[in-house]
Design a protein around this nucleic acid. Structure first.
Lengths: 145, 145
DNA sequence: ACTGAAATGGAATAGCT
DNA sequence: AGCTATTCCATTTCAGT
């Protein structure tokens, strides 16, 4: 992870579809050298994937929420991974504190949301914060410290 | 947004670097037709970007947390956007409920985390949940309902 | 570990159905 | 809207520093 790697990461985080040639021009390296470095970053797990980012609201999922689950013990939702397989659940973080995990969910209607909450309530106590807007939807990972 | 658009979205969410030729093979459409549809999805804002996904822990940011800010009134952190410009803050959602917004942050060390919390405390009351693990880091957006 | 050259294959445009 | 064909450019591999 030298400075060149971070340059490449910066470009690929901003636009994952950049060609190796375009990358090579931006970082002043030959295309094969760029391809080799990117391959190593993928192998090392630093680059976990390349994804088209879909705006949930533009895609018909206007109800977005953060759901905090309180569920310790054998009934905990984290011990029933099939529940978290729903296509309405986009992110799950296990956390410290009063809660067990936090889910980012997005559905089309409040009725769908009600149904989702009902399902989750079988495994713990859900507490929902509706997302009004997302001032920072995402930010690139830069070198730490 | 017909079924073909959703097919393309599914492929591009799984791998944003797929060529139009490869896409055209997978959805059984000619490459120019694919390019045209993808361009329209970008214009409509359904595709908000193409990003290399960097694993924060593999990139040297081993301390990940969800920080809930309680800060209503003129001092609220949302009214001071420069504070949220930090490269340690990866996501900001404005939410309903007892809190004002939720931040996903990632830093290298607990010392860095302490400094970040101190900065945020100037604008409201931060409440932090450390992220122990992320069972679902991301999931593709499928057609709703 | 990077460079340079050659061959395969993809992107983009235009004209057409 | 989508297909076909052409031109140009990019990717990849190999050989060589």
């Amino acid at each position: 992870m030298d400075e060149m790697d971070w340059l490449l990461l910066r470009e690929l985080q901003a636009d994952a579809r950049l060609s190796f040639s375009e990358l090579s021009r931006r970082v002043h390296l030959s295309p094969p050298a760029v391809a080799e470095r990117v391959r190593k970053l993928e192998e090392a797990g630093v680059i976990a994937g390349y994804r088209a980012h879909v705006d949930p609201r533009a895609a018909g999922r206007g109800v977005v929420a953060l759901v905090t689950m309180s569920c310790y013990g054998p009934g905990c939702v984290l011990r029933h991974p099939d529940v978290l397989d729903s296509s309405d659940i986009f992110e799950v973080h296990r956390v410290t504190g009063g809660a067990c995990c936090v889910l980012r969910v997005a559905v089309a209607t409040m009725t769908d949301f009600e149904g989702l909450i009902d399902r989750l309530a079988g495994y713990g106590t859900p507490s929902s914060s509706m997302v009004l807007s997302t001032p920072v939807p995402w930010r690139a990972t830069l070198p730490p410290s």
